[in-house]
Computed example of a mutant assay.
Amino acid sequence: MISRTLFTDILIMIFLVALQIFVLNRITIFGKYTPVLYPVFVMFYPFFRNKYQFLALSFLIGLSVDAFLYSWGINAFATTLIAYFRTLIFRTSTDTSTDFFSFQSLQWAQFLLFLFSSIFLHQFLVQYIEFFKLSRFFEILLNVVITSIISFIFIVVYALIFKIKQKV
């Protein structure tokens, strides 16, 4: 198992924010949808680490994205909220009731459900806070679903490249 420190967490955050801002935000699929990858920091953060440090780092990564996108804290809010509810999302999507969490013990279907649930909640929060109008409810919901699917594909590729399921 790889030992993670605060320094490595910050390096991972810098890498993810740079990848999001300078690469992924320049990609538009179907001329409208942009993949989102930086929430993987929240999803794959080790469960046994300090939860207050985790919430602070989650807020910081969201705020960093907000600083580049001029989005007034929307990403910071959404990222911190999925960090706060991550254990609940994990337990619900994986049907796990124990206090010890491990990605290694999950079946792929449970792992993928956890990823999709997390990214869907993140996208739901970001897009409804940014664009909410009752007259555009279904248009925004469709945008959330499609962006979540596209981001999910990018996150699964990221997990396969870095073998997240085996390391965390």
Rank of each mutant, 00 (worst) to 15 (best):
L24K: 06
G31F: 14
F48C: 13
N25F: 15
G31I: 13
L16Y: 10
Y33D: 02
V23E: 04
I21H: 09
Y38W: 15
I29Y: 00
V40C: 14
Y38N: 14
I29H: 01
T28E: 15
F44R: 00
I29P: 01
F30I: 00
L16A: 08
F41N: 02
N50K: 12
Y33L: 01
K51E: 06
L19V: 14
Y38R: 06
N50R: 09
P39Q: 09
Q20C: 08
F48L: 11
I29F: 00
I21N: 08
L19Q: 07
F22S: 10
L19F: 11
P35D: 08
Y52R: 07
F41Q: 09
R49G: 02
K32E: 13
N25S: 15
L24A: 06
F48T: 15
F30G: 00
A18C: 09
G31Y: 11
P39V: 11
P35K: 03
F44E: 03
Y33E: 03
V42A: 02
P46T: 10
M43H: 07
R26H: 15
N50F: 00
T28Q: 13
R26L: 09
R26D: 12
I27R: 06
L19H: 09
N25P: 11
Q53C: 04
F48N: 12
V42E: 01
K32H: 14
T28D: 13
I21Y: 07
V36D: 06
Y38A: 02
P39E: 10
I27D: 07
T34P: 02
V23L: 12
F22R: 02
V40F: 05
Y38K: 12
T28P: 04
V42H: 03
F22I: 09
G31A: 08
V42S: 05
L24V: 00
Q20K: 01
I21G: 07
T34M: 03
T34G: 02
F44A: 06
V40I: 11
Q53Y: 11
I27P: 02
G31K: 08
K32G: 11
L24R: 04
Y33N: 04
N25W: 11
Y52L: 13
F47M: 09
T34C: 00
V42G: 00
G31H: 09
V17A: 04
L24P: 03
F44G: 03
Q20M: 06
V17C: 05
F47P: 12
N50W: 08
V17S: 05
P39Y: 08
V17K: 05
G31V: 15
L24I: 02
F30T: 04
L37S: 14
I29M: 03
F47K: 08
P46M: 05
T28K: 15
R49H: 10
Y52G: 08
P46L: 10
L16K: 12
N50Y: 05
F30R: 01
V42F: 11
L16M: 13
P46K: 03
K32C: 05
Q53D: 03
V17G: 06
L19T: 15
V23D: 06
P39D: 04
